[in-house]
């Protein structure tokens, strides 16, 4: 039952070309902006790497792009849940002999599957872009790390977004949420404006905002392919939001991962609470 519902949600996502496009819109915009002028802005940061400067900034932007994709595609996939509610399709599920938690979990699972597929696809495109402009393809270890991070980021995004989406009752409110997320995600992940260029207070907020750690972790892996982390100047790392510093202590990969895992567990718990409280339509 869960499997066939998951398959349904995935089919519906991919058959709705517009929803696929819109869930990738932020990614497309970021790449567009990077090609147009963002690239020039951050170029200076990579100068220390000499000939690899372009490779470095490309890797940096693409890490952010992949992190963005894990959020926006997952959100796009969760739209199915609201769509079913507004079209009253949920009534057909609820009058069939399946447990409600199975219906709910199937939305969560399919959003994860879609998020992972779309983000991996984004990663492939990113590599094509990097290689096309003279960079190198990632090594095998980095590839595994990136895939692992894509999975972790998607699960975190899904849990985080599920909590909000499960409270929505209309497609209109969902579009508003999508627009807001699509707009601010580029800022919160420090893509439109490198984190180091932002006021300290906002920097502080971004550093504790869990999704920014997805971008940070991915940047560390991808930039490491250009310049080993230990040779990366602190000011570059801080400026580009590759590593987060609190005072003089750098946030370790382990603590970033822990932040993501904790976020996932907290929002998963909250979502379970909300869904189990909502019984039959009053």
């Amino acid at each position: 039952m869960i499997l066939s519902l998951v398959r349904r949600n995935i089919k519906l996502y991919f058959r709705d070309k517009a929803s696929v496009f819109f869930s990738m819109l932020s990614v497309i915009i970021i790449i567009g902006l990077y090609v147009l002028f963002l690239g020039k802005m951050v170029q200076g940061s990579g100068d220390f790497a000499g000939e690899a400067a372009r490779f470095l900034t490309d890797s940096w932007i693409m890490a952010g792009v992949i992190a963005t994709a894990t959020v926006t595609t997952t959100l796009g996939a969760l739209g199915q849940m609201v769509d079913d509610l507004t079209k009253k399709i949920n009534r057909d599920f609820e009058t069939a002999p399946i447990d409600r938690w199975k219906i709910v979990i199937s939305y969560a699972i399919s959003s994860n599957v879609i998020g992972i597929l779309m983000s991996s696809f984004t990663f492939v495109l990113a590599e094509v872009y990097i290689v096309a402009y003279g960079g190198e393809i990632v090594g095998f270890i980095a590839l595994l790390q990136i895939l692992g991070l894509i999975i972790l980021s998607t699960i975190t995004s899904s849990a985080f977004l599920f909590f909000f989406v499960s409270m929505l009752k209309t497609m209109n409110s969902f579009s508003i949420i999508s627009t807001i997320v699509g707009t601010i995600i580029g800022f919160l992940m420090g893509i439109y404006v490198p984190i180091g260029a932002l006021p300290t207070a906002i920097q502080g907020f971004i550093k504790v905002f869990p999704p920014s750690h997805m971008a940070s972790l991915l940047r560390q892996v991808m930039v490491n392919e250009v310049v080993a982390m230990e040779y990366l100047p602190r000011e570059v790392s801080e400026m580009l939001g590759i590593q987060f510093y609190f005072g003089d202590t750098v946030t370790s990969q382990f603590s970033s991962i822990m932040i993501l895992v904790t976020t996932t567990l907290v929002f998963f718990g909250l979502s379970v609470l909300i869904v189990s409280k909502r019984k039959r339509e009053a």
Binding site: K11, L12, R15, D16, I89, R91, D92
Partner: peptide, 14 residues
């Protein structure tokens, strides 16, 4: 029970 709802509940894209 089988129910035919007033508004259709099947998926247009399938």
């Amino acid at each position: 029970i089988g129910i035919v709802f007033q508004d259709s509940v099947l998926d247009n894209l399938l």
